[in-house]
Amino acid sequence: MGVIVTSEQVQRPRTAAQRRNPYGGTTSAVVARMPGPTRNFLVEVGGMLALLGRVLVVTAKHPAEILRPTLDYSYVTLRRCWFPVTVALGGFIVFLSVAALVFFDQLGAVGIYPPVIMRVCIESFTVWAVALVLAGIVGASLTSELGARRVRDELDALYVIGVDPVRELVAPRVLTAIALTTLMSFPAVALSLLTTQLAGAYYASESSAEFYHYVFDNLAPMEMFLAALNCLIAGVIIGTVCAYKGMNAGGGSEGLGKAVNQAVVVSFVALWMTQTLYTGITQGIFDLGRFR
């Protein structure tokens, strides 16, 4: 445990309006008049953004104290998830490669298979698969850890003894999800490069020299940067959604299970929507599809 803070410091109201009534502002009044589903959605999104904001503030204030548990937790998580991620991603890329090879082989244009498949992988499918698998594995375990503490009232106990759970428990886990998803983009792209090359060699007898020549001739560093940025956004979504759902779990084992289920489904939907938006926007801005 790090530096001990009092519970008053943890839950201190920030402004005069908050001191009078924390939900008395204009925004809260507008949200309270919304119809049920819209209100719930806005409240959830607001809670997630508030949690993310608190995590960022806490991290900026005490970077040295949070770095150590983040590294420890990242190591544990990476040990747990490297194999399933490799299997899931490898299988996904193999069938994608076979589908693309079938198509270009029939067209008599195996030469454009390498750049097209690698571009499709880097711009979308590798990032997508990594984000979904990490949401399923890292996100679900994050929610179940935090939710179990919430269900057994351990988070309240931490408040009582004057320890800020966001600083001690949530911030390292959210930062782990962000860092792991972002850093995972590099080995994932390397794995897709290897898998697509092996598929090309196995199914279409394409030489590796030709494959790598075409790939590196047609890819730009900007694509790798965009993939890493895409993974960063995905990591922020996974960490925030799953931590929020874990912190707000309730009602015994059924409530905890429901929280994990909701965390995975909500992060899936959010990831797919941001992915489509991101691809559309980056393709529109950068015009990456040109062949050399």
Binding site: P84, V87, A88, G136, S144, G257, N261
Partner: peptide, 25 residues
């Protein structure tokens, strides 16, 4: 207890995703 349900949920997710990919291959 609840921890077991949470852990099993995460575990089932992990195994299902890898299995679906292996079936695809």
């Amino acid at each position: 207890g609840p921890v077991g349900v949470g852990e099993n949920t995460a575990k089932s997710m992990l195994i299902s995703m890898a299995t679906v990919s292996v079936i695809a291959t």
